[in-house]
Amino acid sequence: MLTKDDIKHLSTLARIAVSEAEEESLAKDLDAVLGYVSEVAAVATQKDAIPPAGDLRNIMRDDDDVHPGGEFTDMILKNAPDTEDGYFKVKQIF
């Protein structure tokens, strides 16, 4: 059973603020889903299975066809909430 403290911990890891009121319902929802998906434990599997995402092969290319620096900067920064001199503006980290 997930507790409210578990939800607090997950919300910090995931960087998602969760209100006090929502902690309980989230714990309940997650418990139900985890209960269901736990049935995978019943399947006997080999260790080190290869992840089956598509055809796996090496993709190589020459490092050419480089676009001029700054070509897309304005377009990309237009979507940011806060910018300065061609940079994203971020709060002090420490």
Binding site: S11, L13, A14, R15, I16, A17, S19, L26, L30, V33
Partner: peptide, 17 residues
């Protein structure tokens, strides 16, 4: 993220975490 994501999205991110 808490306000920008809807309920199902928050639920799945927490589940994935």
């Amino acid at each position: 993220r808490g306000e920008g994501f809807g309920k199902e999205t928050r639920r799945r991110i927490l589940l994935g975490t």
